[in-house]
Nucleic acid binder design. Structure first.
Lengths: 174, 174
DNA sequence: TACTTAGTTTAGAACATTCTAAACGTTCTA
DNA sequence: TAGAACGTTTAGAATGTTCTAAACTAAGTA
């Protein structure tokens, strides 16, 4: 199953590895990823050699389909990469050791997407308000003004977050 | 329904408000909160007066139970606060205007909890490894060493994230 | 060509989350 | 004290996600 054939493991080390992957799985689930994604990454992170699908299936007791789907998900955002192991026609994977970078990039990407969605909405709203404002009765005009103010606040927040996201890598990575 | 009696609204402004809350709801859902929490906060954020449960029920077309539960969730982490409106025995709420602070605090808290869980695990693992290491066969000793190294890496990451979380408020808030 | 091996895709099962509707407990009012 | 007003709690419905099992595709091997 392993790249260079299976070796016997001490039950204690085996247990540590299982618990490690389990914790990573929970972490992953809490962060909005699937549990299996976290488990897979952890398993590879804690391995000194590339692993094949069947091995991961056996170790984590999950279905082959699930491993297949989730490992490709991981691959998509650079969490693991496929490696060649000569003498085998299986796919082997190894973890990208730069865990922090992976997490941060994914995280940044997600936030930025959301911010963009919000921005589109806000622009649209501002446009509508300026179009209708002159035709509103006094009371409503006040409300329109109030909305404007709020939209400005939201945009300011978005800008803050954006500049902040840009400085993250410098601050945290080395 | 409103604190000072209901006023007619222009349909355009009404539509903007509904879309605004909708977007906030989606944002909220993506960030791991319930959709309704986001909608409630957005509705209050965009209101120039405190709102009561029934009004929120009517505006968002969600059940009273859901509003009750979710507004208290929001209250718990400082997103909204209950205000007194004289002449009514209803509960009125207003949004904490410091949106960014709320989000960041919640976010920080969540991450820190997860880090602590991880830390506990890692400490336990390190203890076990050092206890059993001397009794392991050569091949396994190497693996134990390898595990140690990985644990050290994880701890280093945790430390980085922790110091980073501490500087967030200064960097982003004002 | 038939068989084996490996990975992918998919229909539906299992599960967790969040909602609704309704019952409920309190507090106020007449 | 009866009834209304209000918010809370809860059982179960609706929904969404992620898994499994099995069918499938592709590629190597005998």
């Amino acid at each position: 199953m392993l790249a260079k054939g299976k070796i016997m493991e001490s039950p204690e080390l085996e247990k540590i590895r299982d618990e490690f992957t389990e914790i990573a799985g929970q972490l992953s689930a809490r962060l909005g990823l699937s549990r299996t994604v976290g488990q897979l990454y952890a398993l590879l992170f804690l391995s000194d050699e590339p692993l094949c699908l069947d091995y991961m299936v056996e170790r984590l007791r999950v279905s082959k389909g699930s491993v297949s789907t989730n490992i490709r998900e991981l691959e998509k955002w650079g969490g693991v990469r496929k490696v060649w192991v000569k003498g085998s026609r299986k796919d082997f994977y190894e973890a990208n050791p730069d865990t922090l970078k992976i997490v941060i990039n994914r995280f940044k990407g997600g936030i930025q997407e959301r911010l963009n969605e919000m921005s589109e909405g806000i622009s649209r709203f501002e446009k509508v308000v300026s179009e209708i404002e002159s035709n509103l009765p006094v009371e409503e005009k006040k409300k329109a003004q109030f909305y404007r103010e709020k939209f400005r606040k939201v945009k300011k927040m978005q800008a803050l977050i954006n500049t902040f996201l840009k400085i993250i890598p410098k601050k945290i990575l080395l």
